[in-house]
Write a protein that binds this DNA or RNA. Sequence first.
DNA 1: CCGGAAAACGTAACCGATAACGATTGCAAT
DNA 2: ATTGCAATCGTTATCGGTTACGTTTTCCGG
Lengths: 340, 340
Amino acid sequence: MAEGGAPVTMSDVARLAGVSTATVSRVVNGRYGVSASTIAQVRSAIERLGYESSLVAASLRRTRTNVLGLVTHSFQSYTAEVLKGVMDALTQSGFDLIIYANSDVYGTYSEGWEQRHLTRLSGTLTDGCIVVTPWGEVRTSTPVVVIDPVRDSTVPSVTADNLTGATTAVEHLLGLGHRRIGFIAGRSSLAAAWSREEGYRKALAEAGVPVDPALIGRGDFNPESAAPLARALLERPDRPTAIFAASDGMALKVLEVAKEMGIDVPGDLSVVGFDNIPESALAEPRLTTVDQSMYRLGHEAAHMLKSLVTGEWEGPRQILLPTRLLVRGSTAPVRVATRP
Amino acid sequence: MAEGGAPVTMSDVARLAGVSTATVSRVVNGRYGVSASTIAQVRSAIERLGYESSLVAASLRRTRTNVLGLVTHSFQSYTAEVLKGVMDALTQSGFDLIIYANSDVYGTYSEGWEQRHLTRLSGTLTDGCIVVTPWGEVRTSTPVVVIDPVRDSTVPSVTADNLTGATTAVEHLLGLGHRRIGFIAGRSSLAAAWSREEGYRKALAEAGVPVDPALIGRGDFNPESAAPLARALLERPDRPTAIFAASDGMALKVLEVAKEMGIDVPGDLSVVGFDNIPESALAEPRLTTVDQSMYRLGHEAAHMLKSLVTGEWEGPRQILLPTRLLVRGSTAPVRVATRP
DNA sequence: CCGGAAAACGTAACCGATAACGATTGCAAT
DNA sequence: ATTGCAATCGTTATCGGTTACGTTTTCCGG
């Protein structure tokens, strides 16, 4: 290794090879119009100096950069899954990936982060971007695919089928005999949160169970927001026999609160989450949840963005991916009615 | 949202505000020498147009960009932990983070990836870079901190105390009465792999147990590489009663092979891993392993890089972080000797 | 009312590369 | 020996900002 001095630029190569920078550029990009001997000269100079072209300078002038961007507000465990899916979709595609994360108030949702990140990247650096779970709308001059968009968004997006997933989850609880089913909602501006609530209402409606507004708590997907809501639900005299939380993070908080309050899960309370984050399989009891494959979300989003950039996208601009109910240890048949 | 046309540039702002781009630049960067009224004009124009400065263009001319880079060859679950640590260390620090990943042969170690990624970023885009588990040496013109460097590297680095960790792991096995302890090594060019092997040898030496070369298999940290090695070890007539694998990925493979061969873990065979990846807690039986906090590795690396960039680093350039043995279900006392 | 310094602002070079265009060269056809 | 057409290569403008430097304006005290 060498903590080498100034970075070697294209003009360094040009000088050593005795040609102009234009020629070096042509060689680097394999363009037509350079003689074999000149190519050899330039290549040898590049080799000697250890030159590598600057992504920044190139992207400033070029229209296409063959780099896709991804912006996210934080790195949770599911983010890694998304990234894996994205990378697998990009393998051998010729597109590299740049992920941008800014440093103010990491982990919390500062208004407009997606827009700031996006404009930082999309000016010239990237040909298009994937935005993971934005907090608001996004506008850009290059193609964008959103994973988990906001409600009523018309931006190209990839989402899990939250409606069906939530419906199935609640049907599972109904099938176990539960009738008083609490719900902890996510931030309603997000399409995912809204659909999950719709699924909850739909399943109840189809089973002829009236929706009790008192059993619905309004969280924001942040696990911390769920604790007081769970407590409030469980302290009610007519407390629910089951709780469906709109995210695993919040569901795990429910488990925690129940344990604190001495409520046995799944004996006294059944709990269902949504997402299937890795931690949910580690919980005690293991959490019943709706699996949305983050890997697939990332994979599809990357595939779609790639095609959008090259202009060969034919399919729909809003993709819905199936979900799957994972029945684990946190749900059980309701106890024989103890009501008067 | 709006799929707006061309991105708005600084000269657009200048034109609307009736000033030169130099003045806009001064306002944007809060530099001295602009009257209050002009500042207001420019700000209003920026607001109206929704202008945001291009990271690319700025970084080309500027020396400092306040962006740090990170390069990794793939996104495993531990990568997310590292990233969390990095981001937490960067919160409110004024440094943003850019992660670069290229698309050829994702997941496999193509020679020299770290160097390619690095030069893509370090030309002008970033002030410094973190490299996660490189495959070879790295040279750059900007500061670099390596997580898990190669052997005998002099680059600033952050590493877990692999030697002590491995020693402790083997001592744990010795304490359970094991004497024939197999070892599956990692790729020896990496410092981590080498130290873990040293720890193995050291613990045996201190216990007066001779090292049997036949009990050492040479893997490369890739889980797949461990399967045939484990099989070979376990098919021996004098097979080991315990196996220490240099990584959890490989240790999990050992569990798999043992199950295939009908060998009971931990009854007939004890297994210890290294890393404490999330999956190891999910295995059946749960894997005893040495925890190296990926979060802390990332956190320390980011902290160090930040200080190196600002030139205020005082501490050592090679940091060693403590490890912790997690005793779980895959280890048990050795069965009474069945030897003749 | 004037001189002069400081404040405010514009001009132009520049960062490292690419693209459009023009200039030069070589070789075959006329 | 000219002409014509490619192939080859250099020159220059440009991308979107930043910055050194020069010019103009403002605002004092004398």
